[in-house]
């Protein structure tokens, strides 16, 4: 699953259309859209709102280690080398208020320019309060999105993607204009999103739920202590990784009904020997 947060509805619109996302009726807290492998939430402006919406989305949809998260929105820049409408991706995010840095793990290839982003609590315009801007781009959500998402996901699962809207001069704020402005960049972003791995593959645990159940049963029958049960699990893992048939091997021990711990210990040693011999 790919989870997306945007601050404003006009930003979201440029993505919901190309990705074919539909609004879900059941959520009252935030507007949520879904379609295919994507879920999108509109957070409202600012890092607190964004962090809250991010946490909401990732909790409600039970994000896990195979998912990705994107914070998408507008940003400003002081850099004359960045054009308006250019898509940028953050390789470092600084929270202006706290000075904290967040660094995504840049594991995915992308066609965008990489930049540093600094998140402010207020709109930054040129010369605003004489504030020193340390990053290439500025926005109002990235640090909140990253910090919240990182509670649930790894840094390689989190991407902050922005579209340069202005060079820190007061710009047009008309919603329809923004949606229109974002159409082209968002088409590029949608193409990239579709290429991202929608389910990150992880090595699967060798023991199935059924195996665990059987192991618990055998441990009970053998009256094993917690430490020995743990050792039994380890033996079972090794047995399966060695390509041996675990169930058949354990079945012989599943009706032992050992009367004492000593008896169980002896049976455990027998089983251990049998497994080590086979593997």
């Amino acid at each position: 699953m790919i989870f997306i947060t945007t601050a404003m509805a006009c930003e979201a619109k440029s993505l919901t259309r190309p990705l074919g996302l539909k609004k879900l009726k059941e959520f009252r807290e935030f507007p949520v859209y879904e379609g295919g492998d994507f879920s999108l939430v509109i957070s409202g402006i600012g890092k607190t709102a964004c962090a809250t919406a991010t946490a909401f989305l990732l909790t409600r949809f039970e994000a896990n280690s195979s998912d990705l998260f994107i914070n998408l929105g507008l940003c400003g820049t002081k850099s004359p080398h960045l054009a308006t409408g250019q898509v940028v991706i953050a390789n470092k995010i600084t929270d202006h208020d706290s000075g904290r840095c967040f660094i995504p793990d840049m594991m995915w290839r992308h066609p965008f320019q990489e930049v540093s982003i600094e998140t402010f609590s207020r709109c930054v315009e040129d010369g605003w309060g004489g504030t020193r801007i340390s990053a290439t781009c500025v926005d109002m959500e990235a640090s909140g999105a990253f910090e919240a998402a990182n509670f649930f996901l790894s840094p390689h699962q989190i991407s902050i993607v922005k579209i340069v809207y202005d060079h820190l001069s007061p710009g047009k704020n008309d919603q329809a204009f923004v949606t229109d402005f974002l159409t082209m960049p968002c088409a590029r972003i949608s193409t990239w999103l579709r290429e991202l791995p929608s389910g990150l593959l992880k090595e699967q645990e060798p023991l199935t739920n059924q195996d665990h159940e059987l192991l618990r049963h055998v441990a009970r029958e053998m009256r094993l202590t917690d430490t020995m049960s743990h050792k039994l699990r380890q033996l079972a893992v090794y047995c399966k990784l060695s390509g041996q048939e675990l169930t058949g091997l354990l079945n012989g021990y599943s009706r032992l009904s050992c009367r004492t711990k000593k008896e169980g210990k002896m049976a455990f040693e027998r089983l251990k020997k049998e497994i080590l011999l086979k593997c």
Partner: peptide, 23 residues
């Protein structure tokens, strides 16, 4: 390569929840 300035190597090396195998 992209060059990114950091204060301390631990800001990158010791981030929480990193995926060692992927890295």
């Amino acid at each position: 390569a992209q060059q990114i300035r950091i204060r301390h190597y631990k800001d990158v090396f010791c981030r929480k929840r990193q995926d060692f195998c992927l890295q």
